[in-house]
Amino acid sequence: MSMARQFIQSGSRWEELAGYSRAVVDGEWVFVSGTIGQDFKTGAFPDTAEQQSELALDTIESALAQARASLADVVRVRVYVPDRDDVIAVSQVLRQRLGTHRPANTTVCSPLAVEGAKVEIEVTARRAA
């Protein structure tokens, strides 16, 4: 018997603009969309890639919680960083927040769609039975 998909929203204007969900739950899997480190209520960005990474992971953690999952359930991380000089700072935040679970990771240096964004993080999680 398959379970109905659950769609989770964070209140980001980008979700409404592009018609996507922050996360989609499909059975035991949780797919979290690329998430930038922006305060979605004010539109403000923290100054550094490190701070933006923390905020992005906070948003991801909230979406996972709504899906009855946690950062400990993350099995795959994709990270997009426009400035190669920020990769170390972003990686250190990922290690602090996800490192004990050691998910698979891909980091790409590439421009981002949102002006002011210094990082975008996407995760896939598998909920514990």
Rank of each mutant, 00 (worst) to 15 (best):
S2K: 08
Q6H: 05
I8D: 07
I8A: 08
G11T: 03
G11A: 07
G11P: 04
R13Q: 11
W14A: 07
L17S: 06
A18N: 06
Y20S: 01
Y20W: 09
Y20C: 03
S21G: 00
S21W: 00
R22V: 00
R22S: 07
W29D: 06
W29I: 09
V30Y: 01
F31K: 06
S33R: 13
T35I: 11
Q38P: 08
D39P: 12
D39H: 13
F40R: 13
F40V: 15
G43R: 09
D47R: 14
D47T: 14
E50G: 07
Q52G: 09
Q52L: 13
L55I: 10
T59A: 15
E61K: 04
E61H: 06
L64Q: 06
L64G: 07
Q66E: 15
A67Q: 00
R68W: 14
A69P: 04
S70H: 05
A72L: 09
V74H: 01
V77R: 04
R78I: 12
V81F: 08
P82I: 11
R84G: 02
V90A: 06
V93P: 00
V93L: 03
Q96T: 07
L98I: 12
L98S: 12
L98T: 12
G99V: 07
G99P: 09
H101P: 05
N105V: 14
N105K: 14
T107S: 10
C109Y: 03
A113C: 00
V114R: 00
G116R: 01
K118G: 01
T124G: 02
T124A: 11
A125D: 01
A125Y: 04
R126F: 12
A128I: 07
A129T: 11
